[in-house]
Amino acid sequence: MATLQQVAFRAGCSLATASRVLNRKGPASDLMVRKVRRAAAELGYRPAGLAVGRLGRRPVVGVLIPSITNPVFASSLSSIQNRMLVAGHGVLIAQSNYDPAREADAVAALLNDRPTGLILTVCDPSTSEALLAKLPPTVLLHNLPTAQFQAAVTVDNRGAGREIATFLIGMGHRRILFLSGNFAASDRARLRYLGYLDAMAEPG
């Protein structure tokens, strides 16, 4: 079990600063908050007081999504909450706003509340720092599974991109423009683009 001293050393701050950040008591810069939370997540540190505070309360599951305003993720979140209600679990929600750096901080914040499990939609599981922390049982949502996180609920985004482009080609179109956001912020968009390229490269 990691100690507060180890967290402070890893974050490069004093013991008092690490304590203020993790217990959410007292001032600390945004940069230091990110450093301490990330250090705690990487070391698997949990404030002892949180365990006492959870006694007698129902377990919770942490959920990370890119944006609650996106109807796809809002629908997923609604289904998760309904299922967790039946199972007797609460739900903690965090948003990354499609920002890989903010994503790691959001997961670190979720871990401070000692969730029994996590459901995560990350920007890209192959590069996400959020997945480097010591995590409880975790399911990826809208991401492809990885060697470490094999439990995943997703769709074939590459196949979808290829199918749409193939349909347009079949309608006689040849100059087809692909519009997307930043690939670093969404592996789903990158996979759809690869599917588009697959279709455009096919003979005929």
Rank of each mutant, 00 (worst) to 15 (best):
R83G: 13
G172P: 04
L144T: 10
T121Q: 04
S29N: 00
R20D: 10
D30T: 12
D99Y: 04
L15P: 01
L131I: 05
K25F: 08
S19D: 14
Q6H: 12
L179C: 14
D156K: 03
M84G: 04
R102F: 08
R46N: 07
A160P: 01
N143L: 08
G204V: 09
C123H: 08
R24W: 02
T116Y: 08
I169K: 00
G170W: 02
A130H: 04
N112F: 00
A40R: 02
L194Y: 11
G159M: 07
L131W: 06
L4V: 07
D198E: 15
E103S: 09
A104Y: 00
M1W: 05
K134F: 04
V60L: 13
L43W: 06
P145Q: 04
L194D: 15
V86C: 01
A11R: 03
G26V: 07
A147K: 12
N143H: 06
A189G: 08
V122L: 07
Q148T: 15
S29V: 09
I93M: 10
G90S: 10
N97W: 11
V155W: 01
R38W: 10
Y45Q: 10
G26Q: 07
A48W: 09
A133I: 06
T154H: 14
L55N: 06
P125A: 07
A41F: 02
R24V: 09
R57A: 12
A133Q: 00
G44R: 09
G170P: 04
A152E: 01
A40V: 08
M1K: 10
G159Q: 06
G53C: 08
Y45K: 05
V63M: 08
A104K: 08
V52R: 15
S67E: 14
V52M: 12
S126A: 15
L55D: 06
D105E: 12
L92E: 02
L191A: 15
L194T: 05
A185C: 08
M32L: 15
N70C: 06
L77M: 11
P71S: 14
A40F: 05
R38V: 10
R114Q: 15
K35F: 05
R57F: 07
M1Y: 06
L194R: 14
L118D: 01
I93E: 03
H142S: 15
R20V: 04
A16Q: 12
T166C: 08
G62Q: 05
T166G: 09
N112L: 14
G53N: 11
A109L: 11
L118A: 04
V61G: 05
